[in-house]
């Protein structure tokens, strides 16, 4: 709820830290020349969490550290690295927090079991609702 207040929020939630007046890194706000590579980078950036502004992906954030991370992602993609390798590199540094795509681990398996469990539960409860014959 509170969509209303939310946006005011957004405006108000801008980082209080002063920012560097240094220009943004080379690939922070510049796309890769190869559209296929850029598309790969874009998809990855949308699923990496901004470390400073926390509620946003790095693709949607004005924070400088998000810009620097976009720069890293694009440079690595340009150098031929696979998106999942870049994700793994960041998880190695920051833990699972940095990725919006949860991995299947001992901690997160319920997230992935849930859809199956929900269907099984529904089937179990509904089994007797239907009549077989057209009575």
């Amino acid at each position: 709820m509170k969509r209303a207040v939310i946006l005011a929020a957004l405006l108000a939630a801008a980082p209080l830290l002063a920012d560097s007046n240094m220009p943004a890194a080379a690939y922070a706000n510049v796309q890769l020349e190869d559209p296929a590579q850029e598309a790969k980078a874009e998809t990855l950036m949308e699923s990496l969490r901004c470390l400073q502004c926390q509620g946003q992906s790095i693709a949607d954030s004005d924070a400088q550290i998000a810009g620097d991370l976009r720069n890293q992602v694009r440079l690595r993609i340009k150098a031929g690295e696979e998106p999942e390798a870049i994700r793994a590199w960041l998880i190695d540094k920051y833990g699972d927090y940095v990725s919006y795509a949860p991995r299947v681990t001992g901690l997160t398996w319920p997230l992935f079991a849930a859809p199956l469990a929900l269907i099984a539960l529904a089937a179990l409860l509904l089994r007797r609702r239907f009549t077989r014959s057209a009575a």
Partner: peptide
């Protein structure tokens, strides 16, 4: 998915659940 980060926190870990999930 919305509450899972809390479950993880309760177990002392941090996870993010977003669009890819």
């Amino acid at each position: 998915g919305t509450l899972y980060p809390l479950v993880a926190e309760a177990m002392g870990a941090q996870v993010s659940v977003g669009p890819p999930y």
